[in-house]
Nucleic acid binder design. Structure first.
Lengths: 177, 177
DNA sequence: GTCTCCTAATTGACGCATCAATCAAAGTTG
DNA sequence: CAACTTTGATTGATGCGTCAATTAGGAGAC
């Protein structure tokens, strides 16, 4: 707010076509993730975040992973993962042990029950993604969708980096530079 | 789970290209909505859901709307809106009054403070959406993205309708039919 | 009128996410 | 080694969302 220097005086409103694009994208953005979660919780005993964790664990040897590494691979904050792991441990899906090398670290183990839940959930999840995302699109559309996603994701990083830098600019940046 | 009849024996795994598409899409799906929320809460006093409500209210005469209608326009559950409205009323962004026609109904009013917050937040939000979604894409890419989104959203409706119907099939459907 | 049924909206419990604060174990530097 | 900083992880407060249960008003059948 109140950044007149970087904010155009006259907002660049969306025209009609753009509004339609935005509407369609919004329905996808706010519709697909919840739908995936609903499918999982309906057809298995895993929520979408739980599934993500187990999928990450199952992707590494022995189903053991340092919690920090897992957070990094998932692109999540440590605390987010920590809260989720606590609930998952209570449900018996995973186990946490102190890491032998670094006493601060926690090793996350997939339990047999976690592995079973994963194996049970995976086919239905895959089939759902396939039937909603891949089956309705031609290969060419898939490639174009991918390109568009990548561009937008890049633009997000850029925008957030700019916002973060600006946050500093107001005060300390001169000192650093 | 355990629906062998509808689940192919061999899951239709993703090939390499598909995996890349899915990865890109996933980053968008789980990245853009939070980014929008961060931009809003950083540059204004509104969260993304609050912004949605006020945008809906500002879209109708006098900034007054029956709460049920608002839920419908937003595509939200009543209870979700109810929780949010309670918090927004506490913050002074909206007001609720009993509807004169139907004593069960609640009329939601935008307060002056709500309108001010909206006006303050809108340009930054618009600029963020523009710079992340529209600026990085050509017009043709935008059109193709829209087409892809619509197809996926349609497929979601279909998949959920199928799942819902199936839910009945197991028990009551014979009775109804 | 008074049952019954339907609908509008709220509530409470719970899972999920973020942020700021905390704590303990490593590292680092004198 | 002792003091300081950094890092791995947890915690608590708060907002957000869903689901199931509930309350209260309206509508129709009799």
């Amino acid at each position: 707010m109140t950044r007149p220097a970087e904010m155009p005086e006259e907002p660049r409103w969306l025209d009609e076509d753009e509004r339609d694009v935005w509407l369609a994208l919004r329905r996808l953005l706010w519709g697909l993730p919840p739908a995936i979660d609903r499918q999982l919780t309906r057809d298995s005993r895993l929520s979408a975040p739980e599934y993500s964790v187990l999928a990450t664990l199952s992707g590494c040897s022995d189903g053991v992973l340092r919690s920090g590494i897992a957070a990094q691979e998932l692109g999540w904050e440590r605390s987010r993962l920590s809260h989720l792991l606590r609930r998952m441990e209570a449900k018996g899906l995973i186990l946490r042990t102190c890491s032998p090398e670094d006493a601060r670290g926690q090793d996350v183990h997939m339990t047999d029950e976690g592995r079973a839940a994963m194996i049970e959930a995976a086919p239905g999840h895959l089939e759902f993604v396939r039937s909603t995302v891949f089956d309705p699109l031609t290969q060419e559309q898939q490639a174009l969708l991918r390109e568009a996603c990548e561009r937008i994701v890049d633009a997000i990083s850029q925008a957030e980096a700019a916002a973060g830098a600006e946050h500093l600019t107001d005060r300390e940046v001169r000192v650093e530079a």
